[in-house]
Simulated scan of single mutants.
Amino acid sequence: MIDMSKIKPYDRSVYYYETDRMQIVHHSNYIRWIEEARLDWMKQIGWDYKSIEDDGYIIPVLGVTAEYKSMCHFGDDVLIHVSLSEYTGVRVGFSYEIVDKKTGELRTLCTSSHCLLDGNNKLVFIRKAYPEHDKLFKELLEDYKKRQSK
């Protein structure tokens, strides 16, 4: 299993162009941020999107949620903590906590769910295509459930 203590949260600055007239981050940008964070997390565990796409698969988004707790402003720095929160062998779900880097204040909670499709848009069974990641995802899901029950 991967030592999850070595997985770093995604560190991101808030850019001016991401804000609206109220000088807060426009809600649509959080979805972009979690995608950036998910790509970074997957690369850290050794399963990056580029290699998956090179294998002939795509990873569509099946759903996404965002629950805004407090506002991010231009000049803020945030950390995005990514956790694997769902795994069925076909479907993979992630949970995200976006927190202020300085204060640790929770800014946003998000989720996203995904699957793999082949070149004919047929579902791919991760446990068959990537057995090593199937095992890892099961372990990560178990770890996530333990942390949630505390």
Rank of each mutant, 00 (worst) to 15 (best):
M4Q: 07
S5Q: 11
S5A: 12
K8D: 08
P9A: 07
Y10C: 00
Y10G: 00
R12E: 10
R12D: 10
Y15F: 15
Y17T: 00
Y17G: 00
E18L: 09
Q23A: 09
V25W: 13
H27G: 06
S28R: 08
N29K: 04
Y30T: 06
I31D: 06
R32F: 03
R32M: 13
R32G: 09
W33C: 06
I34T: 02
A37V: 01
L39G: 02
D40Q: 02
W41R: 00
M42W: 15
Q44S: 07
W47L: 10
W47K: 00
D48M: 09
Y49E: 01
K50I: 15
K50D: 15
S51C: 08
D54K: 05
D55P: 01
D55H: 01
I59M: 12
L62E: 07
G63D: 13
G63R: 07
V64M: 14
A66I: 02
E67H: 08
E67L: 06
E67C: 03
E67K: 00
K69C: 15
K69F: 06
S70K: 07
H73V: 11
F74E: 05
D76M: 01
D77T: 08
D77N: 09
I80G: 06
H81C: 08
H81Y: 14
S83H: 13
S83Y: 15
L84H: 05
S85F: 10
E86A: 01
E86G: 01
T88C: 02
R91L: 11
V92E: 11
G93T: 02
F94Y: 15
Y96W: 10
Y96P: 13
I98Y: 14
I98E: 03
V99G: 03
D100E: 12
D100W: 13
D100C: 11
K102D: 13
K102Q: 14
T103S: 14
T103D: 03
E105M: 03
E105F: 04
L106G: 07
R107C: 15
L109Y: 06
L109R: 00
C110A: 08
C110R: 00
S113Q: 06
S113C: 08
H114C: 05
C115E: 12
C115G: 09
C115T: 11
L116D: 09
L116V: 02
L117D: 12
L117Q: 04
L123P: 12
L123R: 00
V124H: 10
A129I: 09
P131Y: 04
P131Q: 02
